[in-house]
Write a protein that binds this DNA or RNA. Structure first.
Length: 453
RNA sequence: GUGGUAGUAGCUCAGUAGGUUAGAGCACUGGAUUGUGGUUCCAGGGGUCGCCGGUUCAAAUCCGGUCUACCACCCCA
């Protein structure tokens, strides 16, 4: 609830809080992402939350600082909360590039920060799942990254009807713009227009294009619009060749297409063709991509991006001085959780405890605590009440805690040394002697007794 | 940074010709239930109606500001 005036009682905008009920679900979601990474042989790494500001400004220019959480530390050094993992990864990988056995598959799942206005699907602090394959230039690596991201999403029950991977390629764009004689320094501006093509009014776009390209704007815009409609390799081939009659240029086109086809082939062989479509409307920002780029969208409904990535073969060399090919992708938890909730695909995550000790007589407290110690030492989770209560209330409490088993501990049990243990799922109750209790509870919980205190 | 909409109990929300003591469901606590859970029934606690100011005999209600949230733009690594 918002209280008074945006003070310290409120928390910062864009920073979420998770009560246990919600956090359980988040943990369950993250567990599936970890699991997908494991199936694809990715190893987890992590890095600092705080980095030198230059790590980000050098790569993307000074303007980026406006979208970072950054400040001067007490030693006068400009630092920033990480807005993404890739620069950190580039440094880590670059530093050990010569001693790494390539290819490397690394992933991370951690929180990142951007100083932007929060809105649908975007917070200032968010958890992102990052996957990267380093030291491998062939398109099979790109396919693996896409496949693993899809595997993560599919593990929640999302399928072909829900997800679409739209694959583009920065080299194709660069090639087309070259053949259209667009000066290299204008590429970024034009790609920005492409990125906005669905949102920006046509006359506005024409105006911007004219400002950027002068007289050639209509011709270039027409060709660009054509490229955006291409959905297959054959169409792409004839489109590229329609831009030039030069023999050498056409050979270069063919080489590009061969690489592109190899990616499509790998995706097909991995059984993912139904998810993937060619779509040169995808440009992926303007930063450091050098090859195929992709975004994964929610196929039905709002069509917002859930994940994205691409190849960035130059970045590690630029950051670290040790060139290393790289392809990666990332998936954020904000859009993912929204989508899973909308679809009813959130993993079930009920509170649970292996065993509840129903302490109905103060005289049994000593026995209960001793038992709790033994059961916990055996690796089971145990709860018991701090104050004695009637069995009715204790069973209610046990139920609320998600107890799988309840041990009745009253006057009678302490005297007799025999304890009724109730299986809360079936309602069945069995009398168990004190000596057998720990083993019995272990069997009931489905956990093998662990060693150690 | 720009624009639109909204803010009433922990949650979802009722509540305007301005008029005693601001309501419901869910959740929470207690009881029915002094040896056995989920259901049911009864009772209870919980509110400066986001905040500050203004208009008025009187403001949850009207006006201004402010904070926050949501939505869109910018941006999207």
């Amino acid at each position: 609830m918002s209280s008074s005036n945006g003070g310290a009682d409120q928390g910062l905008p864009g920073f979420r809080e998770f009560l246990p009920e919600r956090q359980r679900v988040r943990r369950a979601v993250f567990a599936r992402l970890h699991e997908a990474a494991r199936r694809f042989g990715f190893e987890e790494y992590d890095g600092p939350v705080l980095e030198p500001l230059e790590l980000y400004t050098e790569k993307s220019g000074e303007e980026i600082a406006g979208q970072l959480f950054w400040f001067e530390d007490r030693g006068g050094r400009a630092v920033a909360l990480r807005p993404e993992m890739t620069p950190t990864l580039a440094r880590l990988a670059g530093a050990s590039a010569s001693s790494l056995a390539k290819p490397v598959r690394w992933y991370s799942l951690n929180e990142q920060y951007r100083f932007e206005r929060p809105q649908k699907g975007r917070q200032r602090a968010f958890t992102q799942w990052n996957l990267d394959i380093l030291g491998e230039a062939s398109p099979g690596a790109d396919a693996e990254v896409i496949a693993c991201l899809l595997a993560g999403l599919r593990s929640f029950g999302l399928g072909e009807a829900d997800l679409a991977v739209r694959v583009s390629d920065r080299r194709v764009w660069t090639r087309v713009l070259e053949l259209l004689a667009v000066p290299p320094e204008r590429h970024a501006g034009l790609l920005g227009l492409v990125d906005r093509m669905d949102r920006q009014p046509e006359d506005e776009r024409k105006e911007a294009a004219a400002a950027l390209l002068g007289a050639s704007a209509p011709e270039v815009l027409g060709r660009v619009a054509e490229l955006r409609t291409i959905r297959g390799e054959e169409d792409l081939a004839s489109f590229l060749d329609s831009l030039t009659a030069d023999g050498e240029a056409r050979e270069a086109n063919a080489a590009l297409l061969a690489d592109w086809s190899a990616l499509r082939g790998a995706v097909r062989a991995l059984g993912l063709d139904a998810f993937v479509r060619v779509d040169f409307g995808i440009v992926r920002g303007l930063a450091y991509y050098t090859g195929p780029v992709f975004e994964i969208f929610e196929a039905s409904g709002t069509g917002r991006a859930l994940a994205g990535g691409g190849r960035y073969d130059d970045l590690i060399g630029r950051v670290s001085g040790h060139p290393l090919e790289a392809v990666g992708g990332a998936l954020g938890d904000v859009t993912l959780l929204d989508l899973l909730e909308e679809r009813g695909c959130l993993p079930a995550a009920a509170r649970s405890v292996d065993c509840y000790l129903a302490l109905a007589a103060e005289g049994a407290r000593g026995e209960a605590l001793a038992l709790a110690g033994e059961v916990r030492a055996a690796g089971l989770s145990v709860l018991y009440p701090f104050r004695r209560a009637n069995f009715g209330k204790l069973f209610k409490e046990a139920n609320r805690c998600g107890a799988r088993a309840v041990v009745a501990l009253g006057e009678r049990e302490v005297e007799s040394g025999v304890f009724p243990v109730r299986d809360m799922a079936t309602g069945r109750e069995e009398a168990v002697s004190r000596a057998d209790l720990v083993t019995y509870l272990g069997q009931l919980s489905g956990r093998s007794p662990a060693a150690g205190p």
